[in-house]
């Protein structure tokens, strides 16, 4: 089973990102689960969302403590939330930032740390800093676990028509621009 933990703030579409990843995995023919963990339900508060992907029915419902992938939607969380809690040797971390991450997250080996300027990508593609579809694209690139066509399908089902193309563009741009 693959476990993905997403960190962000209320209003950043953290929960939607987990749901898009799980939905895409489902379209790929896998079993999947997505669930939110709300701290406090208000804009700006730190939030976690979880996604699981497996080849068999998923019955486990606990939070994700030892993630295989960690996605950080907002780099300002790095100072206040222990986003790396439970990270394993092989855990891969994807962070939305333009800064050099090796100083911020020295514990994570270079080959497992990925960053992308998701906010700029979202502003370019969508016109607003709606970053979650960009991070889903980055996750697809880093993990190789979900097909682009399945994410596109999930986005089409999920967003209002006028936002579908823009979000697909953000996802594709991020897919190409994530780097070590």
């Amino acid at each position: 089973m693959i476990e993905i933990r997403i960190h962000g703030r209320g209003g950043q579409g953290v929960v939607t990102a987990a749901e898009l990843i799980a939905t895409a995995a489902f379209y790929d023919g896998k079993f999947a689960q997505a669930s939110p963990f709300f701290g406090v339900e208000r804009r700006g508060a730190p939030i976690e969302a979880y996604a699981r992907i497996d080849d068999k029915e998923i019955r486990l419902r606990q939070h994700i403590y030892k993630p295989d992938f960690i996605i950080v939607q907002d780099a300002t969380l790095l100072g206040s939330v222990d986003v790396l809690a439970g990270a394993k040797k092989e855990t891969k971390v994807i962070v939305n930032t333009e800064k050099d991450l090796s100083k911020l997250l020295p514990k994570i080996k270079k080959g497992q740390l990925y960053s992308l300027p998701a906010t700029q990508i979202a502003i370019k593609a969508i016109g607003k800093p709606l970053i979650n579809t960009a991070l889903v694209g980055a996750f697809a690139a880093v993990s190789g676990l979900i097909k682009i066509s399945s994410i596109e399908k999930a986005i089409k089902e999920r967003f209002p028509t006028k936002l579908v193309q823009k979000n697909i563009e953000a996802m594709n741009l991020a897919y190409k621009s994530v780097y070590h």
């Binding site: 023919g29 896998k30 080849d55 068999k56 029915e57 999930a154 999920r158």
Partner: peptide, 19 residues
């Protein structure tokens, strides 16, 4: 969204869990 599923699924796992 409401999403339908059509694809064939892996039969690799044969446990009590549905695979």
């Amino acid at each position: 969204s409401q999403i339908s599923h059509q694809s064939q699924r892996s039969q690799k796992f044969q446990t009590s869990q549905s695979s």
